[in-house]
């Protein structure tokens, strides 16, 4: 596979200059493990589920989101995300573009106690909600930088974290351009959206998609021509967040405003 070759090359480019005597010795230790993993990656043990047949993504129909925060609530319930309002696997942003073209953004449900930025309706030019979550990038910077191989892309297109391996260096949190990762205060490891991997492999929808009352979130399989996501991609003009960073996100927005970052 091309991706593998590229990974190998990338590895080599980084490896050779850093190598030296000790490097070569350590390579003898590390390389067989890395090579073995590339050949046959893990198969989840769910009967009848073959990850090679799927490739997941999510669509967001911006015009349908009513900012009710049911998705955030459901995500916290389903995934043991801390209830405190500082940790999110998914969240909803509210944008208000004012008549002077200045932009006021806030996270729905994350209110400052002392100061509220209330925009007078007369000053509003346009306004909308933007659900955000991990983009499960096809070229994920977080996976690239993890020093201990504790986060990876599954064959079916989810970026997961191995919380038994993560050393908590938080380089992945720094490398994510979308702020999708946080350090879980209880496990003390990096945590993020998994596309509800434990539900998806059983044929269920991610919790946020399940509860969305207006179906602003569309989950689906990019490998299946009959999936709702592929239909969504066919019927809409699609944009992704920060395409210039070449992360190749798999969360697709329709009707995305240029002010959204």
């Amino acid at each position: 596979m091309d991706q593998d070759k590229r990974d190998l090359l990338k590895g080599l480019i980084l490896f050779i200059p850093a190598g030296g005597v000790i490097g070569a010795l350590a390579k003898a230790v590390a390389a067989p493990a890395a090579a073995a993993g590339k050949e046959a990656s893990a198969r989840p043990e769910t009967p009848g589920y073959d990850p090679t047949n799927h490739y997941y993504g999510m669509g967001i129909e911006v015009g349908k989101c009513i900012g009710c925060n049911r998705c955030v609530e459901a995500c916290k319930q389903e995934n043991d995300v801390p209830r405190e309002p500082f940790f999110f696997r998914t969240w909803v942003e509210r944008y208000v573009i004012k008549k002077d073209r200045s932009v006021v953004v806030e996270t729905v449900g994350l209110k400052k106690e002392k100061r509220k930025e209330v925009v007078d309706q007369e000053d509003t030019l346009r306004s909308f909600f933007i659900p955000k979550l991990c983009n499960h990038c096809a070229n994920p910077p977080c996976v690239q930088v993890c020093p201990v191989d504790a986060t990876w892309s599954t064959e079916d297109g989810a970026v997961l974290v191995d919380k038994n391996r993560c050393i908590g260096c938080r380089y992945c949190i720094q490398a994510c351009p979308y702020g999708a990762r946080y350090l879980h205060p209880e496990t003390r490891t990096a945590d993020k959206c998994t596309f509800c991997y434990h539900r998806v492999v059983k044929g269920l929808l991610p919790a946020c998609v399940e509860v969305c009352p207006t179906q602003a979130r569309i989950f689906g399989d990019l490998k299946s021509q009959a999936s709702r996501l592929v239909r969504f991609e066919r019927m809409n003009k699609i944009h992704v967040l920060k395409p210039d960073l070449n992360t190749q996100p798999k969360v697709y927005y329709s009707g995305l405003d240029g002010e959204v970052r």
């Binding site: 230790v29 590390a30 493990a33 890395a34 073995a36 993993g37 590339k38 050949e39 046959a40 990656s41 893990a42 198969r43 989840p44 043990e45 769910t46 459901a74 319930q77 389903e78 995934n79 191989d149 990876w152 599954t154 997961l160 191995d162 038994n164 391996r165 998994t194 991997y197 434990h198 539900r199 492999v201 059983k202 269920l204 929808l205 919790a207 399940e210 509860v211």
Partner: peptide, 23 residues
């Protein structure tokens, strides 16, 4: 150290997580 082994274990743990929303 074997990526194949620890990956499989990790995926297994991930899948085994409790489903709370029935669908």
């Amino acid at each position: 150290v074997k990526q194949r082994v620890y990956r499989a274990a990790s995926v297994k743990r991930e899948i085994a997580r409790e489903v709370r929303y029935a669908g």
